[in-house]
Design a protein around this nucleic acid. Structure first.
Length: 270
DNA sequence: CGCACCCCCTGCCGGC
DNA sequence: TGCCGGCAGGGGGTGC
């Protein structure tokens, strides 16, 4: 579910809610996530203090006082919600962390595609193998142009490859390619420099706008306080098959590529 | 190495 | 009304 804007929104929530807190207890109710949780997970976390809440791509990185990093990926349906320890656990509350201030952080993940682990900075780098941050200067025309020359894949697949650029998923790939005026199925190497430049610029504009609207909530994404985002109301193409393009009125088309639904306007995108 | 295909898991929705 | 297939924002493994 969550792509970069949603994970960044959760990061902001968590920074306000858990930064500086100690971890009192860790209850693992269901260790079977995307990979089984390490048996030492709870013991490793307990007693530590949270001194940093950062994000890399779609991963949250919670920095601990012993220089280890608590790595979290929300998969498709993962939620991190702050609440009271008195609340009865809900269905799919897999991990419950109580904090020094008496609050608790619940990890709920219906489909269990999420991931949690604790490791060193080097471990985390090796586990994730991520490309550049799309909102950093490193994601530039020069960078994407070079990446695009090395592949026969469609531009949408390149943008969704986390080893190339970290954080773009299925929604924002369609949305940013609409803003760039480039069809998702275009073989990446056929893009002109001008088109690659528009893709880079559209990526930054769309992701920043989505963060401003606290992400997109289609079915189950919520931030740390349980609030939905509103960017779904501004989708130009995603999940709008057959509906009129907001720019030209033509019906938005859907196609499947790489097993994922892809949306575009046949006249605005070339 | 790249890439197509299939899998992981639960829930919802539309069609019959 | 009920069942069944398809689909969903994630990643990863396999075989070619």
């Amino acid at each position: 579910m969550p792509e970069l804007p949603e994970v960044e929104t959760v990061r902001g929530s968590l920074e306000r809610l858990i930064l500086g807190q100690s971890i009192t207890t860790v209850e693992v109710r269901e260790p079977r996530l995307r990979r089984p949780l390490d048996p030492d997970f709870a013991v490793t976390l307990a007693g530590r203090t949270i001194c940093r809440v950062s994000r890399r791509g779609k991963y949250l990185q919670v920095g601990l006082d012993n220089d280890l990093i608590w790595l979290i990926h929300l998969g498709m349906t993962g939620q991190l919600l702050i609440g009271s320890p008195d609340e009865t656990p809900r269905l799919h509350d897999h991990i419950i962390v109580t904090l020094g201030n008496g609050q608790c952080l619940r990890y709920n993940d219906t489909r269990r595609f999420g991931l949690m682990a604790v490791g060193s900075e080097a471990d985390v780098t090796a586990w994730t193998s991520l490309g550049v941050e799309p909102l950093s200067p490193a994601f530039s025309l020069r960078y994407l142009w070079r990446k695009v020359q090395e592949t026969q894949r469609a531009i949408k697949e390149v943008l969704m490859d986390q080893r190339v650029v970290a954080g773009i998923g299925n929604i924002y790939a369609s949305e940013l390619l609409f803003r760039a005026g480039v069809r998702p199925g275009r073989v990446a190497i056929t893009l002109s420099q001008q088109e690659v430049g528009r893709v880079v610029k559209a990526t930054k504009v769309v992701l920043r706008e989505a963060i401003r609207h606290r992400g997109s909530s289609i079915s189950d994404y919520l931030d740390g306080e349980g609030q939905p985002g509103s960017f779904q109301e501004r989708f130009r193409v995603y999940d709008r098959e057959g509906k009129p393009c907001r720019s030209c009125g033509m019906a938005i088309q859907r196609e499947v590529r790489g097993g994922r639904s892809t949306f575009f306007c046949p006249t605005c995108q070339r």
